[in-house]
């Protein structure tokens, strides 16, 4: 056996540090590899609880509808429709998200476009938020409604036909933890954006005020079908 006559203690000390780093690095690598099935499990369990919640809500609704008269349910339904259409301002728990362009300079030979925010990035974030149960979203004060576009317009972003330059502030109403997790998961949207140095900051808030849609609705081509359309 190799005899160490000197420096046992020092080498042992360094070995402690080395072992620690080894274990942490090992776990990080494993974490990266195994994060996809984990995501799947989380996804499924989340979906299950969401479906159960939906079922409970529907059961309650059935019960309520049986109890109330026609007029009451009509006013409630019209309120729901208004909230869904985005014509009333709403308040609730949620997140405020600020997204800004990358401060990093692009390396020579690289496309500087990679370090800017594009409509695709914003759409990914928004899509993830809707998927996580967001009930109302606004970008820089523009409420997102069914016909809202999110589109690059030169270096700016056009939302509801109004142009904005970075930074973009997204306000979301929903379950704050679920919303945050949906964005922050490994391999998720924020990690991808941060890889290019795009600055994303999240803040959970108890009170988020999402403004109403300020524009008008115009229907040139679409006409309602009179006999219910069912």
């Amino acid at each position: 056996m190799l005899k160490l006559r000197q420096g046992q203690a020092a080498i042992a000390l360094v070995c402690v540090v080395l072992g620690f780093m080894l274990a942490v690095q090992f776990r990080t690598a494993q974490d990266i590899r195994s994060s996809i099935p984990f995501q799947r499990i989380e996804d499924l369990s989340q979906r299950l609880s969401q479906t159960e919640k939906e079922r409970d809500v529907l059961l309650k609704q059935v019960y309520e509808l049986r109890q109330t008269t026609g007029a009451e349910s009509a006013t409630k339904e019209s309120e729901n429709i208004k909230m869904g259409a985005g014509v009333v301002a709403v308040r609730g728990t949620g997140l405020s998200i600020t997204i800004d362009d990358s401060k990093r300079l692009s390396k020579p030979g690289e496309n500087p476009n990679l370090y800017l925010i594009h409509d695709e990035d914003m759409l990914k974030v928004i899509n993830e938020l809707w998927a996580a149960g967001a009930e109302a979203i606004s970008i820089n004060g523009q409420r997102l409604i069914a016909t809202s576009e999110v589109r690059c317009a030169g270096p700016t972003l056009s939302v509801n036909n109004t142009r904005y330059s970075p930074p973009y502030e997204i306000l979301v109403i929903g379950e704050p933890q679920t919303l945050e997790n949906s964005l922050k998961m490994r391999g998720g949207v924020i990690e991808t954006l941060q890889f290019w140095g795009i600055q994303v900051s999240l803040k959970k808030q108890d009170i988020v005020d999402v403004p109403a849609y300020k524009g008008a609705f115009r229907f040139e081509y679409a006409k309602p079908i009179k006999d219910g359309g069912k």
């Binding site: 160490l4 042992a12 402690v16 776990r27």
Partner: peptide, 12 residues
């Protein structure tokens, strides 16, 4: 050193 390594790994 081996003991140190084991301590480090278990810490990590």
């Amino acid at each position: 050193p081996l003991v140190g390594l084991i301590i480090g790994i278990s810490l990590g």
